[in-house]
Design a protein around this nucleic acid. Structure first.
Lengths: 181, 181
DNA sequence: GTTGCATATGCACATTTGTGCATATAGGCT
DNA sequence: AGCCTATATGCACAAATGTGCATATGCAAC
């Protein structure tokens, strides 16, 4: 149920509707946490019955009415409490590693294509992260909040750089296999 | 349902029982895919009804009888077919990144402890991988099968090295925050 | 004028994964 | 005698997540 915490974390920023949360997820937390709007609405209802958030209906004309959710003190407590318990390391369940493990039972050309696609993706990601870094964090004094986000961003850059290097090496090894066999 | 493929991949090595698969998972695929024996037995049954594996009962005395599962030609086809479809990149749903994102709503000392624990873990892992590398792969001529596993191992080493560097930097940044605030 | 998009919320079903519990035998330890 | 461990398999329930479908309005584009 960590989606609950992801939502609470977003709501520390400001009160939001489910719709806005969906978009916020896309642009921020969504870098590492993808989900559809249905799950967010579902979770918001649960969080409300648990008292971690409050809902307030806002009547609009021209558009459907909306429900603005606010973090309650209980929600804040829950977040802080949650933060004291060590998180389980995420398991790296990557089918691609499975394919590598049984490389001789697998379509190697398809795998090469797949690695190429990943390489593209990771390069684009790294590029994006570096631009965000340059625009928002390079050489500025940092609040606690900003420092945390910078650490997250660096985490992302670290991952992408490693993955890029690995993809390049892996492609080389596949080529080498082709030449020797 | 990628657990199914994880099992099939293991069975390319040799026919095995659910019990042996459980142990095989611990020592090989388990580096990136943890699961309990119950799930393996459950999945084996499904794979059998789907015709991807065959079961053969072996009567033992002293121990309970066992069911040895063998990969069928249909199972081999299924593996190859699966390998041609690009795998979705695994989403990096790490609660720790969430904690970083809301660093000012979070218990920073607990987070520091958590990062320290991770650092320990990643160092131990890297050490283990490097020893496996030295023992099994360093400077040997490589079959297709071994090359694939080497690529997987390098993937692991890449990740651990990146994570170690990140943890060290992150701890430094947390200390810096403590000193300035 | 109708097609498509942005706004806005949600139900219901299915799949995947996790976990507690159950069972059975043999051998070794205390 | 009682308890733990290794071997060996599995059910049943719960939680988390994914996905197809449903609804309603207004505005812009074609």
């Amino acid at each position: 149920m960590a989606l609950a915490e992801a939502i609470l974390v977003c709501l520390t920023e400001q009160p939001m509707t489910g719709y806005e949360l969906t978009k916020a997820f896309d642009s921020t937390v969504g870098f590492f946490w993808r989900t559809g709007h249905q799950q967010i609405y579902r979770e918001l209802q649960r969080l409300k019955t648990e008292g971690a958030v409050d809902a307030r209906e806002v009547v609009q004309n021209g558009k459907p009415n909306k429900l603005v959710y606010t973090l309650t003190p209980a929600g804040r407590d829950r977040l802080r409490q949650w933060s004291t318990i060590p998180t389980e390391r995420p398991s790296a369940r990557d089918d691609m590693l499975l394919k590598l493990y049984a490389l001789d039972s697998v379509d190697k050309d398809a795998l090469r294509q797949e690695i190429l696609m990943r390489l593209d993706h990771h390069r684009a990601r790294l590029d994006l992260y570096e631009r965000i870094f340059g625009r928002r964090y390079a050489g500025k004094e940092t609040t606690t909040r900003e420092t945390g986000r910078l650490m997250g961003l660096k985490f992302g850059m670290m991952m992408e750089r490693g993955l890029i290097a690995w993809c390049e090496e892996a492609l080389g090894m596949l080529d080498q296999l082709d030449r020797t066999v």
